[in-house]
Lab assay of single mutants.
Amino acid sequence: MKVMIRKTATGHSAYVAKKDLEELIVEMENPALWGGKVTLANGWQLELPAMAADTPLPITVEARKL
């Protein structure tokens, strides 16, 4: 699914347009965010693609819901 990742004042957030859902990312498998699992505030887990740590945000990526 397409997910937009952006930086907020409190960390990172994910927006899933198909579900009209925006949630804070509360847990990251990798400190650089990319190439691992993230957990959203509502409990969803997404697998993000591997990208460079300095990838500019906001960005829309293809993520997989676990």
Rank of each mutant, 00 (worst) to 15 (best):
52 A>T: 08
65 K>Y: 15
22 E>H: 11
33 L>S: 04
35 G>L: 04
49 P>S: 05
25 I>D: 00
52 A>E: 10
10 T>D: 13
13 S>V: 13
11 G>M: 02
43 G>A: 04
18 K>N: 14
64 R>I: 14
26 V>K: 03
6 R>E: 03
54 D>C: 05
23 E>F: 15
1 M>C: 15
8 T>R: 08
60 T>Q: 08
26 V>F: 04
58 P>S: 02
11 G>H: 05
30 N>S: 09
52 A>W: 05
19 K>V: 15
4 M>K: 08
16 V>R: 00
56 P>N: 08
32 A>I: 09
42 N>F: 03
9 A>D: 12
35 G>M: 03
21 L>G: 07
4 M>N: 09
27 E>R: 10
59 I>G: 00
15 Y>I: 11
44 W>R: 00
5 I>S: 00
34 W>M: 03
64 R>F: 12
65 K>W: 15
17 A>S: 12
21 L>F: 13
27 E>C: 14
34 W>H: 02
13 S>E: 07
43 G>S: 02
38 V>G: 00
21 L>P: 02
15 Y>V: 10
43 G>V: 01
61 V>A: 02
30 N>T: 09
23 E>A: 14
11 G>T: 03
36 G>L: 04
42 N>Y: 02
36 G>N: 03
64 R>D: 05
3 V>R: 00
58 P>N: 02
25 I>P: 00
8 T>Y: 08
3 V>C: 03
17 A>M: 14
26 V>D: 00
34 W>A: 02
47 E>C: 14
39 T>L: 10
62 E>K: 10
55 T>D: 02
24 L>P: 13
60 T>G: 04
31 P>N: 11
28 M>I: 08
53 A>H: 11
14 A>V: 15
61 V>G: 03
34 W>E: 02
11 G>D: 02
50 A>H: 13
6 R>L: 11
51 M>F: 06
56 P>C: 07
47 E>Q: 13
3 V>Q: 00
46 L>F: 13
62 E>N: 13
18 K>F: 15
7 K>C: 08
11 G>A: 06
2 K>P: 09
21 L>S: 08
54 D>N: 11
16 V>C: 14
6 R>W: 08
53 A>W: 13
42 N>V: 02
62 E>S: 11
34 W>N: 05
52 A>S: 12
13 S>L: 12
17 A>Y: 15
52 A>V: 07
20 D>Y: 11
61 V>Q: 01
51 M>Y: 06
47 E>G: 06
57 L>K: 02
58 P>G: 02
25 I>N: 00
